[in-house]
């Protein structure tokens, strides 16, 4: 059986909030290393890969592989009943038809308990190869969100160009064009403001801004975001959490015909 206790419900609330507009029905695949999810959006352009490591829970117990088939809209309705600081416990049997969730207020004067019906989801899994990306950019997640939102007001697509002079986000729209260029920032006082660019070769790829703006809903999970880019492969946008857990988004590029 699965028993997983989170010190603060907000971790799961934020994760589900960040992905629920991209994917609807998906399996939480549980084993002794944690809770994983992989799901594509309906158009098969974007993929969500979540890993909540056992280390992010206290305690975490899951002695065999358990698939928890969830509708994220339904899960959101239940999670809305949890306060951010509540202690959240997930419980499920080995072949579950429901997921048990309890929310305990931190001063223990209130315990809420919900059982959520599960679904049988036959999910297609894609193999994601280990990739040495040509460019890896680490930046404040709020900055990335601002760039995507600003450019989306002008255009459907953004071209991300990483070179030795920095990283440039450029768009062309009906009303004109725009670009934002970022250079390396080293803020010793506050490392969260750093912009780091690791480059092995210059890259330039075009992506749909609609999806990137959607990924930015994960902004609350982490103060920094990492973009991994190589020519001719999907972009990886990664939000790292405590305990080695992460939320990753992959986005297929737009390719010239």
């Amino acid at each position: 059986m699965l028993e997983a206790r989170l010190e603060q419900a907000q971790l799961l609330k934020k994760v589900v909030d960040a992905i629920k507009d991209l994917v609807q029905d998906c399996n939480f695949d549980c084993n002794d290393s944690g809770i994983a999810l992989q799901a594509m959006d309906n158009s098969h352009v974007a993929l969500v890969s979540m890993m909540l490591k056992a280390e992010s829970f206290n305690p975490f117990r899951c002695d065999r592989n358990i698939a928890i088939g969830l509708n994220l809209v339904s899960l959101t309705k239940v999670l809305r009943a949890a306060q951010n600081e509540d202690i959240l416990t997930l419980k499920a049997e080995d072949a579950p038809d429901s997921l048990n969730l309890t929310f305990e207020s931190s001063d223990k004067d209130r315990i809420s308990e919900y059982d959520l019906k599960l679904m049988d989801i036959d999910q297609e899994h894609l193999g994601i190869p280990d990739t040495d990306y040509s460019a890896t950019i680490s930046m404040p997640s709020a900055e990335f969100k601002r760039i995507c939102t600003d450019l989306m007001a002008m255009s459907e697509s953004v071209t991300i160009e990483a070179g030795k002079d920095g990283i440039k986000f450029a768009c062309n729209g009906d009303i004109g064009n725009g670009s934002i260029t970022l250079r390396t920032v080293q803020d010793v006082e506050n490392k969260e403001n750093n912009i780091e660019i690791a480059l092995t070769e210059p890259v330039s790829l075009t992506f749909s801004l609609k999806y990137l703006v959607n990924f930015c809903k994960a902004q609350n999970l982490s103060k920094t975001v990492k973009l991994h880019i190589s020519n001719e492969v999907p972009l990886l946008v990664e939000y790292a959490m405590e305990g080695g857990s992460y939320l990753r988004f992959y986005l297929a590029p737009k390719i010239g015909d």
Partner: peptide
Amino acid sequence: SNQQARLEGFFKPV
């Protein structure tokens, strides 16, 4: 203009 690629063009089903 650019065409939106799908993920299956890069990642194979397992």
